[in-house]
Amino acid sequence: MPDAIRTARPEDEEALRRLDRATWSPLHAVTPPPAPDAPFFREHAGPADHLVAELDGRVVGYVRLGFPTSLASNAHVRQIHGLAVAGEARGRGVGRALVRAAVDRARAQGFRRITLRVLGHNAPARRLYESEGFVVEGVQPEEFCLDGTYVDDVLMGRSLLQRL
């Protein structure tokens, strides 16, 4: 388990950039690898939209929260836009703690649902999300072509109105 889960701070930028580059993989990313000088925080994904996990005083993971669309009609839904855990911290409950913290934060902020998208071939992530109450709500077959392989986009979600 991580020592702490907290809201990201502007000074976490460099640690999060390094983590993002180190954990990039076609197993979970549909975009190209981040450039070494690419900013981690963006206009619509600033420090307040990220929860970070610390272990032994170091940032070892993050979850990025956003919205599925900019439409007012689904502003009651929060969406996980990214989850990363440093290789040396895997298997220590960091990913699970980040997912739970994201769910708890969205619930505390009054959201009714939380959703995410995960690639069909990312079995470890799918198992984690399912164990935390997310269910498959749709599949877009062969939505992405990654390294010459067509991969499904799996839509998952859960209600925030009841606890597991």
Rank of each mutant, 00 (worst) to 15 (best):
V151M: 01
A125N: 05
G138K: 01
V59Q: 03
G120E: 00
F144E: 06
G82F: 12
R78F: 02
V151R: 03
G157D: 08
R42V: 06
H76S: 07
A101D: 00
G148T: 01
A86T: 02
R127F: 02
S73V: 11
G82H: 07
R112D: 13
R105H: 07
R112H: 15
F111Y: 15
G120I: 01
C145H: 10
H76R: 09
F67H: 15
E143D: 15
A84Y: 13
G148H: 07
E142M: 03
R90E: 09
V59L: 08
A125I: 00
V99R: 03
A106F: 12
S70G: 15
G110H: 06
Y150F: 15
G61Q: 07
E142I: 04
G148R: 00
V94F: 08
S159D: 04
L55C: 00
E132I: 10
F144T: 01
R113D: 13
L155W: 14
F134Q: 00
Q109F: 04
R92K: 11
Q79D: 10
D153A: 13
P68E: 01
G95E: 08
R113G: 00
G93V: 05
G66Y: 10
Q140H: 14
P47H: 05
R100L: 15
D153L: 11
P39E: 09
E142C: 01
P47V: 04
G87M: 08
G87E: 15
G61R: 06
A102Y: 11
G133C: 00
R90Y: 06
A125D: 08
R64Q: 14
C145S: 12
A86W: 11
P39V: 08
V94Q: 03
V77I: 14
A38R: 14
G87A: 15
G110D: 01
Y129H: 10
P47A: 14
E132T: 12
R42L: 13
Y150C: 10
E43F: 11
R64G: 11
E143K: 12
D147I: 09
G138M: 02
N74L: 02
N74R: 12
E43D: 12
L155T: 04
S73L: 11
A97I: 02
R42E: 13
D56Q: 07
P47C: 00
G66H: 09
L55W: 14
V135E: 13
S73R: 14
G93I: 09
F111L: 02
V99T: 09
I114S: 03
G61A: 09
R112L: 15
V103I: 15
S73C: 13
L128F: 00
